[in-house]
């Protein structure tokens, strides 16, 4: 019985994921695209919960759905009318390239998935403890096995913050120069 429930939730979340991803790519107004991406992130968090990643799901909703997407919506609202995309002017070449690459990616994925399923290597998941994916376990891994990755991540965030400040202040200076 619980099996059927898990499948139902999975199918619902997967359809929400794909539909909102298609929405992000096809909406003309970036504001609607950003809202669709919030739905995409929420559906992904449901899938992470099904996979036992409670901490990652919470981080997904807080960091992505909260902080990052609010910043996106703020910038889109700030730029206003400038964000509207002009009607299509280029030739069809990029669409063909995109279609070919997409077909190749999906084809590779399907072949790998079918091959792995047929060989049986993906059919039996390892048993997990109840604490799998808990904040305690993730934190312990971050501070023991993955300490270098943890430190490098902090440097990356610092560099990004400095980069954001530099880009912002540079734009202000050039605006003043243009006015003078």
């Amino acid at each position: 019985m619980s099996n059927i429930l898990v499948w139902a939730v999975w199918i619902f979340a997967a359809f929400a994921c794909i539909a909102s991803a298609v929405g992000v790519v096809t909406f003309r107004n970036p504001f609607y695209s950003a809202l669709a991406l919030i739905g995409n992130l929420a559906a992904l968090a449901v899938l992470y919960l099904l996979l036992g990643g409670e901490f990652v799901a919470a981080g997904q909703v807080l960091v992505y759905g909260g902080a990052v997407m609010v910043m996106f919506l703020f910038v889109i609202a700030y730029l206003g009318d400038k964000t509207d995309e002009a009607p299509w002017a280029g030739g069809p070449s990029w669409q063909i390239v995109g279609a070919v690459l997409a077909a190749a990616a999906v084809g590779t994925e399907v072949i790998v998935a079918i091959g792995s399923t047929a060989s049986g290597s993906l059919s039996h998941s390892a048993p997990i403890a109840r604490s799998f994916g808990s904040p305690e376990q993730i934190g312990r891994l971050f501070l023991t096995n993955h300490l270098i990755a943890f430190e490098v991540t902090s440097i990356v965030l610092l560099v990004a913050a400095v980069g954001g400040v530099v880009l912002g202040s540079h734009a202000r200076v050039t605006e003043d120069d243009a006015r003078a």
Partner: peptide
């Protein structure tokens, strides 16, 4: 990570999230 029963994949996913946040900061700037 769930399939192999190791949480290291989740640690890596959190690192990817941090990189994505940095990329958004610079891109939006």
């Amino acid at each position: 990570a769930r399939h192999f029963g190791h949480a290291d994949g989740q640690v890596f996913a959190i690192a990817v999230m941090a990189v994505a946040a940095s990329e958004v900061v610079v891109g939006l700037g």
